[in-house]
Amino acid sequence: LQAPEVAQSISKMTFITATDGNHGRGIAWSAKKLGAKCVVLMPRGTSSERLENIQKLGADAWITDVNYDATVAMAADMAEKNGWTLVQDTSWDGYEEIPTYIMQGYLTMAKEAREQLGEEVPTHVFLQAGVGSMAGAVASFLKSAYGDRAPKIVVVEPFSADCIYKTAAADDGELKVVEGDLKTIMAGLACGKPCTLGWKELRACASAYLRIQESVAATGVRVLSSPLKEDPRILAGESGAAPIGAVIALLADPNLSEIKNKLQLNKSSKILCFLTEGVTDRKSFLEIVWEGKYPSAI
């Protein structure tokens, strides 16, 4: 793509996307590497640090006055009006080719995890979901890779943005949309409308769906940043730490024993989580780790 004859054509292109942070940062980085223009829209409530990280990569980025799903619609409308290329990590009827490529890209980390695990097979995999494209892709890969030995897939979402949970609970063939501000510290998961492709895979592969409080994700951040013994220190963002926080809550909170037993979590369980986000908002990270914001109820 960086060959002169290709780069000249790409330099005339403009890529546009809507993002809570990570996806847009990736698109901005890629556009910079390819010499293309990039426009990134971010939903209301996005932290200034996440915006600045994208702007530093040369993208024309700003925060809208609407939530994530409305921001996606805004980006799609701008792409159509201006002849730009929409690179969105969610799909809908008539827009599936590029989201499929993105979901295939997510398979890289699933493949690497399987290679690192070798002969070890996880019994449970906890996957965070915003629109569900990452979770759907990884779940599908694991189901295909392990066959009859495939682990239980547990999907984790914030209470305030639980579109996958609501869709699964209804199980009526219709995608459920969560409206409003979708306010949560798990900014990367603050999505109100499921990805059609992601949900298709999750419906076929997932075993359970969980909604978690803010304190659960915050616990995940704190535990990862303050490890015991020889465990490595991991600096994680709230969306990335959400699955680990859910695992800790299930294993440590006696009030959740019924759910733990239904999931068959016990001392012999081998649990795999995917950390999808580093510290992308230092202010929030310090509030959680230093100031003890969102304390655990365990």
Rank of each mutant, 00 (worst) to 15 (best):
I244D: 02
R222H: 03
L265E: 11
K270E: 12
P4E: 06
E5S: 02
L235I: 01
L256H: 07
A252T: 13
A204Q: 12
S284E: 15
A73M: 09
N82K: 14
N22S: 13
F274V: 11
K183F: 01
L86Y: 00
C163W: 01
H124W: 07
I259W: 07
L182S: 00
A242S: 14
I102S: 11
G278N: 14
A73I: 03
V279A: 11
I153L: 10
V223C: 07
K56N: 15
A73H: 09
N255K: 12
I27M: 00
V155I: 15
K81T: 09
M134A: 12
Q213P: 05
E112Q: 14
E238Q: 12
L1I: 01
A218P: 05
C273H: 09
V72L: 06
A208L: 07
V279H: 12
R50S: 09
D77F: 00
Q2A: 06
V87H: 00
V87C: 08
M74N: 11
I10H: 00
K283H: 13
K152R: 15
L41Y: 15
T184P: 03
G220N: 03
K166V: 01
A217T: 05
I27W: 00
D181H: 07
G278H: 14
G94N: 13
I288D: 09
A161V: 02
I259Q: 07
T85E: 09
L263R: 06
T184W: 03
F15D: 00
A139P: 05
A252G: 10
A135L: 09
S30H: 02
N53Y: 09
E112K: 11
L175H: 14
N22M: 11
V138N: 06
G147D: 04
G132Y: 04
L107R: 13
Q8N: 02
A18Q: 05
V178E: 12
L117A: 06
K166H: 09
G136S: 09
D171V: 06
E230T: 11
R44C: 04
E174Q: 13
A70H: 10
A297L: 14
L1Q: 01
K260M: 12
I54H: 02
G188I: 05
G237S: 10
G198C: 08
S269A: 15
R50T: 07
A208H: 15
Q55H: 02
E120N: 06
S268G: 12
A168T: 05
A168C: 09
Q116D: 08
D89K: 08
Q128M: 05
A145P: 02
A249W: 10
E291P: 01
L41W: 10
Y101M: 13
Y165W: 15
G21Y: 03
M74H: 14
L189S: 12
A252H: 04
Q213I: 00
C195K: 05
F159T: 04
P151Q: 08
A145H: 12
V177H: 15
I234K: 03
K37L: 01
Q8G: 02
I63Y: 10
Y209G: 08
D162W: 00
K111Q: 08
K183L: 06
G136P: 10
E277M: 13
D60S: 13
V178K: 11
E52V: 03
V40N: 01
A217E: 03
G35D: 09
Y165M: 10
T108A: 11
T14N: 04
S284I: 15
Y101T: 08
E258L: 11
M103Q: 15
F274A: 12
T100A: 15
T276W: 07
D231F: 08
